[in-house]
Amino acid sequence: MRLLEFKSPFPAWLLSTILTRLTVTSLPMVAIVGISAAGGSYILGGLSSGAYAIGESVGAIFLTPLLSEHKVKLRLMQGCALCAALLVMCGFLALGGMPYLVAIPLLVFLTGAISAPIPGVLRSSISQFSSNPDRAMSLDNVINQSSWVIGPVLGVAMVHGFGTTAGFCLLGAFLAISVITTPKAIAAGYEQSSGATAKPQLTLVIIPVVASAVIMAVTASFDTLVPILLTEWEGTDSRTGWVLAVLAGASVVVSALLGIKSHWKHKERNASAFTFLVVVVLGITGFTYSYPSLIALAAILGIAQAPAMIFRQQIIADKVPQSQQATAFSYLYAAGGIGYSITAGLTPALSKAASPAIASLSVAALCLLVLVGSYLYAKRKAQ
């Protein structure tokens, strides 16, 4: 990808995107591992992680449409500053141990809600200032997938290396830096509607949004099935990281390769095909029988996941007016968080109640049902 194709906001956009994505992907592990290390429990840590995902969804749906293009830079600065302060507060609450730790889920929920519009605005901004939006979406996906590889490892390393308080404060520092960089990442002449006019037409976004939820639901289900299956076969889940690294690595490589081509045809057809393949891979995951087979499925899932997500983003950039793209991308982001949260809990529950095979097949069937429902709904509304 030739960076010269991007105008002056690109360096600030790149730094802001990396810092905010690393915060998003590191925070769940900082909460889970850090709260436990500070005298809490994994249950409380998991509750905090879930609270962040719920907060993201609430903020993306309800706060992003309230942003105005005239004050978007100011609102982003305020959002980053407030979230940085909330994370620092979490760190200092951890010093007190129980019962102060029980307040962290609320603060993390507020952090998720307030910060939720930021990724959508950044994604909309690069779509507007880039001379090639298709490549911009590929680059955005490379950063996103890389963050999901680095973030959880970084979160654990910060807690183990420096402690829970330092872990939360370092994430706060990421957002404090973003206070400076994020306003500079907004395109000149950036278009952003507010209120009712900020909401895109439902028929334009329903399929990409539902597909985003399905893709992330599949990802969460696969992420939880891997340690369950490895423990069942080998008595330990120590090789889980390698499997998930293959998935993320394959997705990053394919995202980069997709960015080489300037424009893609038949995006909707390709997106549907790769989304269907993602669901099929999940459906057979529970029936695998060895570590090499899991590695192979992880590679296939990563290869299919990248174009499924990128083409959905490109469809939004192509069809939705620029003034509504921040809201549309936030819906995409929120849907992914909702899908991930649901199946992250549903998959292990089904595995325990029945078996990993039943869990993977059931979640895949549910995802397929939701996809078909969205297609039928969009088709009926279009008539």
Rank of each mutant, 00 (worst) to 15 (best):
M137I: 10
T182K: 09
Q128V: 06
W148P: 02
T164F: 03
N144Q: 08
S130D: 00
T203P: 00
F174N: 06
I180L: 15
S131I: 10
S194C: 10
L204W: 00
Y190C: 09
S130Y: 00
S193D: 07
Y190F: 15
H160A: 15
S193Y: 03
G167I: 11
L139M: 15
G189Y: 03
P183E: 04
T182I: 09
V210G: 06
N132T: 14
T165F: 02
A198Y: 01
L175P: 04
F168W: 10
P183L: 10
P200N: 08
G195A: 07
N141Y: 09
V209K: 11
A166C: 05
G195Y: 02
F129P: 03
L171Y: 09
V149S: 15
G189H: 09
L170R: 00
P208M: 08
S127P: 02
C169K: 02
G161C: 08
A136D: 05
A198V: 04
Q201K: 14
T182Y: 04
S146D: 03
P208D: 04
F168V: 13
V159E: 06
L202H: 08
L202K: 12
L175T: 12
A136W: 05
T181P: 00
N144R: 02
V210A: 12
L175K: 13
P152M: 11
K199P: 00
L171H: 06
E191L: 13
S138N: 04
V159D: 04
C169H: 04
A176K: 14
N141Q: 14
V205C: 06
G172C: 11
P200M: 09
A187K: 06
G161D: 07
L204H: 01
I206P: 01
F168G: 10
L170M: 06
S138E: 02
S130L: 01
I126C: 13
A185E: 11
D140L: 07
C169W: 03
A196G: 10
L139C: 08
L204T: 05
I180P: 01
K184L: 13
T197I: 04
V156W: 01
P208E: 08
T197V: 07
I150F: 00
S212A: 15
G172K: 11
H160T: 14
P183F: 09
Q201C: 05
T197S: 13
S131Y: 01
S130G: 02
G189C: 07
D140Y: 02
I143N: 05
T181N: 05
K199W: 07
A211G: 06
I206Y: 04
S212L: 09
G172W: 04
I150G: 03
S147K: 12
I186A: 12
A187E: 00
G189I: 12
G151T: 10
P183H: 10
A187S: 10
A187T: 07
F162H: 07
L170Q: 02
